[in-house]
């Protein structure tokens, strides 16, 4: 198989993976916020401050109202959770892929 066919087949497999994981069904702003929060999480259960997510390169350009609406939507979908015992606005990313599937 030449590399171009391999490349396109791999792309097709990964596009299906993306659809199965439900990433394509979220709004773009939700995806960007989720990915920003995920990239700031090194270990499962790590707390990420709202400011950290807001200042991430993926989310900087999102309008304030859209940002808060998307954040609330991700909370409702269970993809992120409010961090327990934290005074400032902080979140924990849900690493369980079933949650992503469930909300697809």
């Amino acid at each position: 198989m030449d590399q171009f066919r391999a490349f396109f087949q791999l792309r097709s497999i990964l596009l299906e993976m993306e659809q199965d994981l439900g990433l394509d069904k979220l709004a773009q702003s939700e995806i960007d916020i989720f990915l920003a929060a995920r990239s700031l999480t090194e270990n499962e259960g790590d707390v990420v401050a709202s400011d950290q997510i807001r200042n991430h390169s993926l989310t900087k350009s999102i309008a304030q109202a859209t940002y808060h609406r998307s954040l609330r939507s991700l909370l409702e979908k269970g993809m992120i959770k409010k961090a327990a015992g934290s005074k400032s606005k902080s979140y924990v990313v849900n690493m369980n892929p079933e949650i992503v599937l469930k909300n697809a």
Partner: peptide, 13 residues
């Protein structure tokens, strides 16, 4: 194997 006619998905991989 790719290109052998069997539909492949990421779960099988």
């Amino acid at each position: 194997y790719a290109g052998r006619g069997t539909p492949i998905n990421w779960k099988l991989i």
